[in-house]
C-alpha cells in the first residue's frame, strides 16, 4: 500500500483543480449568496422596520395605550394618542368573517377539484382558480368600492356599503383561490396507496374522502387555512378601499372599520420622516410583521409535522 502511494502522487494520477472545478466552486459560492439573500431580506425587513419604529416603541409608546386604547388620533395637535385597539378589532373582524366565508367554500372546492372532478373539467377549474388568484388587490378594492358598495346598500338597506361585510366578501374571494390550491395540494399529497386500500375495502368515494383522505391530509389543510388567514390579515389595498376606513369598534358586520394595514397605507404618505406619527406607523408594521411571521412559521411547522409523521 504505502509503496504504491509513495510512487504516485495524487497530482500525477490526474488530480488537478482545473478550470471547470474553479468555475463550479466559484458559481456555487455566488449562488449560495443569492440563496442566502432570502435570509438577509427577512432580517433586513425586520431590522429596517424595527429601526424606524424602535425609538417610538422604546421611549414614546405607552404599551397599555397602544394595545388597549381604541383612540388612534396621531394628528391631534394638542394631545395625539396612539391606540390601535380599534384597528386590531377592525382587522380581526374582517379576517374572521372573511375566513368564515372563505374556508368552507375553498375547502369544498378543493375536495371537488382534487377528488371528484376529472380530466378536462379539473384542468379548466384549476386554470380558473389560477386566474382568480391573479387579480390585483387594487382591482378588488375598486370592485368593493364600485360594485359591492351599492349592492350591499340596496340588498341590506343600510346607509353605508363600505363595511366589515364588504371587505370580508372581497377578502374571501381573494383568499379563496390560494386556500383552494394549497388545500388541493394537500389532498394530492395523500399517497395513492391510501386510496387503493380504501377502494379495496369497498368504500364509496365519499367514504374514502371523508374517512381516509381528509384525516390523512388534515395538517396540510390546516396549514392551507392558516396561510389563508395570513393572506387576509396582511391584505392592504382591498381593505383600505372596501372597509370604509373609519375608526370604530365594530358591533355588527355593517359597521365601517379600519384595518392595521390600511392605516399605514393611508397615513404614511402624509407623515414627515422621523416624526412620532411616522414612527408609530412603523410600530404597527413591527406588530404586523411579527404576527404574520408567527402564522407562517406555524403553517410551516404543521406541514413539516405531516412529513415526519
Amino acid at each position: 500500500m504505502s509503496d504504491i502511494t509513495a510512487a504516485t502522487t495524487a497530482e500525477a494520477a490526474g488530480d488537478r483543480l482545473d478550470k471547470n472545478w474553479m468555475i463550479d466552486k466559484g458559481l456555487q459560492a455566488l449562488m449560495f449568496i443569492c440563496g442566502f439573500s432570502a435570509i438577509i431580506f427577512v432580517l433586513g425587513i425586520f431590522i429596517f422596520v424595527f429601526k424606524e419604529g424602535a425609538e417610538f416603541v422604546a421611549h414614546k409608546m405607552d404599551f397599555a395605550e397602544f394595545f388597549f386604547s381604541p383612540k388612534w388620533r396621531p394628528t391631534s395637535l394638542s394631545n395625539p394618542t396612539y391606540g390601535i385597539l380599534a384597528l386590531i378589532a377592525g382587522t380581526a373582524a374582517i379576517t374572521a368573517l372573511s375566513m368564515a366565508i372563505c374556508l368552507p367554500f375553498s375547502l369544498g372546492a378543493a375536495v371537488f377539484i382534487g377528488e371528484f372532478a376529472k380530466g378536462k373539467t379539473r384542468e379548466y377549474l384549476k386554470i380558473l382558480i389560477e386566474l382568480l388568484a391573479a387579480i390585483p388587490s387594487v382591482v378588488w378594492g375598486f370592485i368593493g368600492l364600485a360594485i359591492m358598495n351599492p349592492f350591499i346598500i340596496k340588498t341590506f338597506d343600510v346607509p353605508i356599503g363600505l363595511n366589515v361585510l364588504n371587505s370580508s366578501l372581497i377578502l374571501a374571494l381573494m383568499a379563496a383561490p390560494i386556500v383552494t390550491s394549497l388545500a388541493e395540494d394537500a389532498l394530492k399529497a395523500v399517497p395513492d396507496a391510501y386510496r387503493e386500500a380504501a377502494e379495496a375495502l369497498g368504500a364509496t368515494r365519499w367514504q374514502m374522502i371523508y374517512k381516509v383522505i381528509i384525516p390523512a391530509a388534515k395538517n396540510g389543510l390546516l396549514s392551507a387555512a392558516l396561510l389563508g388567514v395570513g393572506r387576509a390579515f396582511g391584505e392592504t389595498m382591498a381593505v383600505l378601499m372596501a372597509s370604509g376606513h373609519s375608526i370604530n369598534m365594530p358591533t355588527s358586520m355593517f359597521d365601517s372599520v379600519r384595518a392595521l394595514t390600511a392605516t399605514i397605507a393611508a397615513e404614511l404618505g402624509e407623515t414627515p420622516v422621523g416624526s412620532d406619527h411616522y414612527q408609530a406607523l412603523f410600530a404597527i408594521g413591527i406588530f404586523l410583521f411579527i404576527i404574520t411571521f408567527v402564522i407562517n412559521l406555524a403553517a410551516d411547522l404543521i406541514v413539516r409535522g405531516v412529513r415526519k409523521g
Binding site: 440563496g35 425587513i45 422596520v49 391584505e235 404574520t292 407562517n296
Partner: peptide, 23 residues
C-alpha cells in the same frame, strides 16, 4: 433559507412598503 423564503412570501405588502421606505 427555505424558512426565510416561505416567510418572505407571507410578509404583508404594506410591511414590504415600510421596508422599502426604511431601506
Amino acid at each position: 433559507i427555505n424558512l426565510a423564503t416561505i416567510n418572505l412570501a407571507g410578509v404583508p405588502s404594506i410591511v414590504h412598503a415600510l421596508f422599502g421606505v426604511g431601506a
